[in-house]
């Protein structure tokens, strides 16, 4: 009898101790300050326009990591962060990361004036009525999301940061590197 109970308890223990069927994927790179891992979810649609008025769709980035960033000209932290994003874009050239830097509801003039003063190399996309941004539900501006090649949001960055800092560069480089090349 005791042996049977012990066996039942062992089976229950084994079942409870087993990893759940939907276990999280292996841990990615260590997270630098301000980057938060989220419960992975499908990225909302993002269909915005570029400075020439052409439509740009996040869906075209499938197969690549995407850096989706929302900003506005009146936002002080955005002013501090934007030059770092311009530099980050340069530093990440040739790597598997597509940038979608999206202005929220500013006029053409406001965008031109803002970028002309602090990040002349950066061209921003526009969400003219802010409706795309609403779908993404950023906690505030600026706000950044990192979307994997399958279109799933994995990380978000709270507020502005110095993206040129080595901690962020290393994180992004390791994140977008092909699985076999990750250190």
């Amino acid at each position: 009898m005791r042996t049977r109970y012990a066996l039942i308890l062992a089976v229950i223990g084994a079942v409870l101790g087993a990893p759940p069927a939907s276990a999280k994927p292996p841990k990615g790179p260590a997270l630098p300050a301000g980057i938060r891992e989220v419960v992975i979810y499908p990225a909302p649609a993002l269909v915005v326009i570029d400075d020439a008025g052409a439509t740009v769709d996040l869906a075209t980035a499938r197969g690549h990591w995407a850096f989706v960033h929302f900003w506005a000209s009146w936002c002080i932290p955005c002013r501090r962060e934007m030059p770092h994003i311009a530099q980050l874009q340069k530093r990440m050239q040739g790597q598997d990361l597509r940038f979608f830097v999206v202005n929220v509801a500013d006029s053409d003039d406001a965008i031109f004036e803002f970028l002309g003063g602090i990040a002349t190399d950066l061209s921003s996309l526009r969400d003219p009525d802010g409706s795309n941004t609403e779908h993404w539900q950023p906690r505030g501006l600026p706000s950044t999301f990192l979307v994997d090649p399958q279109g799933m949001v994995h990380y978000r960055a709270l507020g502005g940061r110095d993206w040129e800092d080595s901690a962020y560069l290393e994180f992004l480089t390791r994140l977008v590197a092909p699985a076999g090349n990750r250190k």
């Binding site: 506005a72 929220v104 509801a105 009525d129 906690r139 501006l141």
Partner: peptide, 15 residues
Amino acid sequence: APANSRATFRWTLLP
């Protein structure tokens, strides 16, 4: 009110 102004106003409020 225009949608872009509403969006900007929304973002300038404390959540």
